[in-house]
Design a protein around this nucleic acid. Sequence first.
RNA 1: GGAGACGUGGCAGAGUGGUCGAUUGCGUCGGUUUCGAAAACCGAUAGGGGCUAACGCCCCUCAGAGGUUCGAAUCCUCUCGUCUCCGCCA
Length: 417
Amino acid sequence: MIDIQLIRDEEDLVKTGVVNKGGDVELVDDIKKLDKEKRRLQVEIEAFQANLNAISKEISKQFGQKKLDLIKEASQISAEIEKHRPKLLEMESDLDSLLKKVPNLPLSDVIKGGSDKDNKVWYKKGKLPEFSFTPKDHVDLAKQLDLIDFEAAARASGSRFAYLKGQLTILEISLMRYGMDFLISKGFVPIIPPVLMSGQVMEAAGYLINNEDEIYKTQDDLYLAGTSEQPLLALHAGQIIPEENLPLRYMGISSCFRREAGSYGKDVRGILRMHQFQKLEMFVFTTPDKAEEDHKHLLALAEELMEKLEIPYQVINICSGDLNFSAAKKWDIEAWMAGQGQYRETHSLSNCTDFQARSLNIRYKRTDGKIDYLATLNGTAFSERPLISILENNQQADGSILIPKVLVPYTGFKVIK
RNA sequence: GGAGACGUGGCAGAGUGGUCGAUUGCGUCGGUUUCGAAAACCGAUAGGGGCUAACGCCCCUCAGAGGUUCGAAUCCUCUCGUCUCCGCCA
């Protein structure tokens, strides 16, 4: 949630940010107006309340007729308050709903743009693999090596599901385990989070405003996590963390669930876009002034993981219009997938500043005693998508697939055949 | 799923209708003492919101939401959570 003080003090700045993110400035005007009215009423009611409190105190000291008179007077004031209170509550609730619709503002160095078409490739790393034959895509490779059963998954669960089988299952677990060990060595605390989340958490994470139909909801009003970013965010909900304990770095490993509504016909082939997948996610709570530094740190870690796997990739600067609701800045990593002959998104790293933390009241106590909201950052360590790159980039003429060297200690085999 | 107990400040733990936003202890911070430290002693120490140029003043919050009352941490209702016992289960 955005800071209402920012709308009061820096209206233009907020409006610019909202526009750049593809939002509606009217929202800001509505908030400003309602906020003013609300405060006027609040002052009025609080004056009554102060009077009532004073009289109530006096009542406890008085006796006889004087007491009865005061009680009568207090009743009248109380009635007066009751008359106005519903209006105030309504205004507060309306104001809150409006505020929740305001997206996080892009940082000043984010490229302005309307959609993903305006995203810019920042730089590329790694040498693209060359083949003496026409490389196959991971679906054909998987079929040939009996690594994925899409047909069975379709019968069991519908489209966009898969059974990973045999050596691919081992490779997938190895990838996660490798990522875990790497991040543990960088000071991240491993977490297996709950993957069913309350609406409050989903909303605070920023997934119920524009992305509601992306998320599975259960009959108990719990939502299936689309990423462990959501439960990790909630890990410190309502807490005040001493500054000396920061930053807090976590990695969540979980299944992730996405409805992929509106993506019909897009990326239907293979395991690129699934309703369910495993993901190892990095999540950082830090002070707002360190957020950009920590964001760079997350990118560096994600890149190092890809470099160790020897997967060529490019880093994308996400433009303002393509930012998530909660993100102030975002970078994607797109990995080379030789069978498809293109880079595809495998990682996404966002700086959410204090936007998510404000909604869940996650704060820190500064060394000078002041209390302020934390910044939150999230980024992919590994999802299942890098498996596609491994399969497609490392395929051999004989149809076998070489395991990246760093994973061999985990898989126990050097080649899938 | 059944039965019972309980949810108070960073923690422990008082408080059952009237200066209680809350006694006390621990912790934390500052000071005295000390060459320095410990101990001792003194003092400070919840969060949120509003008004004001400022000094300050006011309002709200004792799991959450309602209700009773002039007045609620305290009484009533519902919800959520924790613990114990039983049942079930990986």
